[in-house]
Amino acid sequence: MTTTLNQYPVLHGVADIRMETHPLPEIGRDEVLLRMSSVGLCGSDLSLVFKGSLGDYQLTPPLGIGHEAAGVVQVCGSDVTHLKPGDRVALEPGDPCWKCDMCRGGHYNVCFTSDFHAAPVPNPGCISRYYKHKAALCHKLPESVSQDEGAMMEPLSVAIHACRRAHVGVGSSVLICGAGAIGLFCLLAAKAMGATHIIMTDIRESALKKAKELGADHTLLVKGGEDGKVLADKVERVMGCRPSSTLECTGVPSSAALAIYATRSSGAVVLVGIGAEDVALPIFNAAIREVDIRGTFRYVDCYPVAIDMVAKGMVDVKPLITHRFEFQDVTKAFETLRRGSNVIKCVVSC
């Protein structure tokens, strides 16, 4: 490989994206150098670019952009045996130590020592001509799965992990609050994992129409500021039951309250969406009904499952890719994601 320079966008402040050129990164023995192919834009990327924050994480520039990614292996470190140059892979973001109690206990997504958990974006980001990554977190794509689909393995893995945390399985009744991108991925994952009764809420008719197209059994249009108990009764009337599992995908306090009120006793609420750092919730209601309120962060061993689901036709992520952009148009891609009412996923070709 004769290329010696790399190029990628860098966030230097709120809405301040600059394209920069740097030397190619040197890889370690357990790493691979990738020629990036496709990178999806995420709501967390959007929040960092235009708000400068994500939950309690505050932007510390300069910062790279992008973590939903697929690429092609160019060079392998000396200890890498399961990959070779030319392999197409989906990248699982993260840098766990594999040594702490969390990693050894199977919770590498909340590794004690990983900087990735404290700063939940890679730097430089995956929107890059070339990118180095731990080989163990590069998952080979079968020929039937495209690079664009490979980039969607990240949000699909988020959804699979959230469904697992919510105990979604065969015959589950599920409420999904929010029919944005991650809510729709949760819909696809829940159906593939056996849920038979799914209702989705949103403030947008267009989003609920898409949810119905993708297989939601019921939808419910909500308005900002509506009483959570009243909405919970509406959910029960529409579904014919209270959901056993609820995935809250908005991060909006009123939606989180609805999630708790609507979920049946001994059910589970998983907080998927990231909102304000401090939120008031009806905890006492959840406590006396033994409703579990659970957090979720990224994924644990979900990429192989996600890839298998797509390869076998159990999940079709292609309808969620609504807009595509060239590498040099990354700023336009973010503006489209922020302003577009019909945007689900933007994918940047690297």
Results as ranks from 00 to 15, higher is better:
S44Q: 06
P253H: 07
M102Y: 12
P243R: 06
A195S: 07
P85A: 05
P253A: 10
G55S: 02
Y8N: 00
A211I: 07
A195I: 09
L271F: 12
P61E: 10
P96E: 04
Y261R: 14
V145G: 06
K51A: 12
V72M: 10
G194D: 06
E92R: 07
A190Y: 03
S146W: 01
V315Y: 04
S341Y: 07
P142Q: 07
Y130G: 00
I274N: 02
V170D: 12
V121I: 14
L208I: 05
I27K: 02
Y130A: 00
D278E: 15
I321V: 15
G40S: 08
P124W: 00
C138G: 03
V49E: 05
I182F: 07
R242K: 15
G28T: 06
S172M: 06
I160H: 01
F50P: 01
I307L: 02
I288A: 01
S265Q: 15
P62T: 07
L46K: 11
G64R: 00
P142T: 03
D101G: 12
K318G: 08
S47V: 12
Q147H: 15
E335V: 11
E248H: 05
T331N: 12
S349L: 13
D115Y: 13
L41M: 08
S173I: 11
P96D: 06
E335Y: 05
G228H: 01
A159M: 07
Y57Q: 06
L220W: 02
A268R: 14
V272D: 09
E154F: 09
G178V: 09
R289C: 01
H12I: 09
A257T: 11
T3Q: 08
C350A: 12
G224H: 13
Y299P: 06
N6P: 01
R18H: 08
V272T: 09
M1W: 00
W98S: 11
H167T: 10
I288C: 08
N123I: 02
R237L: 12
Q7C: 13
L137Q: 09
L11N: 00
R104N: 12
R294P: 12
V343K: 03
G180V: 08
V343A: 08
M36I: 05
R104P: 04
F50R: 02
A259Q: 01
I176M: 04
S146R: 11
L208Y: 04
R164D: 15
R104A: 11
R204L: 15
Q58E: 14
L137Y: 12
L83Q: 04
G55A: 06
A262N: 09
M309P: 05
A216D: 09
L33Q: 04
